[in-house]
């Protein structure tokens, strides 16, 4: 039992950078680890162990989301040929079904809906790739200093912006659809569900009747996420730059972790 180090000035847990790196990349077995680090090596190996079956649930939901996005995107590009204005008004009218009591379609079309409904309408407009301009009230994402390098370039406004890059990028925002669905709850839902966007939601949910349960699962209890949010993908430039890196050797799960200088 190592109680006290012989030399009171020696650090019993001294760790050099090379050893730390081997620990972090799983290249140091507990038997090889320096004094005091065998348990750490075992711990990290357990943390990076092969997946257990219970970690692989949820694939069906993810696939459903992909399906919904793909279909809505296809529908969006088919529709791109039609006049944008008609499309927009129609969609807003659909989304505003739950807001008719407060002024309804006209208010929606002019951007004067009550908060929650406005948010829902915006989600749908984003969903179907409408060219509705981003509302000024859209709060900028809080950003971590220095994180801009990680794929948060100018493209990050793409979701709501009008840039040419967003044309036809009609990803259905399932959470947005759920928000809209729930915002319109109590209204006549049969009409709402005819909208292409809501059909995507119904498909993702596995049927119209399953939408409430699906949305309940999708939206946290506090009904967050009024805004579609996701960091922009890396710019092509960034991707290419990283593509130029030498391929990581080893091939293990942590192989690329070894790409230290």
């Amino acid at each position: 039992m190592r109680r006290q180090p012989a030399d009171p000035h020696a650090d019993p847990l001294a760790l050099d950078g090379e050893t730390a790196e081997r620990l972090l990349t799983g290249r140091l077995s507990p038997a090889q680890a320096p004094p005091g680090y065998a348990e750490v090596a075992a711990l990290l190996a357990a943390a990076a162990a092969p997946p257990a079956p219970e970690e692989l649930t949820g694939e069906a939901a993810a696939r459903a989301a992909l399906r919904a996005v793909t279909r809505a995107r296809a529908a969006g590009s088919r529709r791109a040929a039609r006049p944008a204005r008609r499309r927009r008004v129609g969609l807003v009218a659909v989304v505003a079904a739950g807001a008719l009591a407060t002024g309804g379609v006209a208010a929606a079309a002019t951007g004067h809906l009550p908060g929650p409904v406005q948010g829902a309408a915006r989600s749908i407009l984003v969903t179907v790739g409408s060219d509705e301009p981003a509302p000024p009230a859209n709060p900028p994402r809080a950003s971590t200093p220095g994180s801009g390098a990680t794929g948060r370039g100018p493209a990050s406004t793409g979701a709501t912006g009008r840039g040419p890059g967003t044309t036809g990028a009609a990803a259905p925002n399932l959470k947005g659809l759920c928000n809209a669905y729930q915002a319109g709850e109590g209204a006549e839902q049969g009409g709402k569900l005819d909208a292409t966007a809501f059909q995507a939601l119904a498909r993702a949910a596995g049927g119209r009747e399953k939408i409430p349960a699906y949305c309940q699962h999708l939206l946290p209890p506090d009904k967050k996420a009024k805004e579609p949010r996701q960091p922009a993908p890396p710019t092509p430039g960034q991707g290419q730059g990283q593509g130029g890196r030498p391929p990581s050797g080893g091939g293990g799960d942590n192989g690329q972790g070894a790409d230290r200088p």
């Binding site: 989301a65 995107r73 990803a171 960091p231 890396p234």
Partner: peptide, 10 residues
């Protein structure tokens, strides 16, 4: 899923 078609990289 939403950003997949715009992602470029290895």
């Amino acid at each position: 899923v939403r950003g997949l078609d715009r992602f470029r990289g290895n």
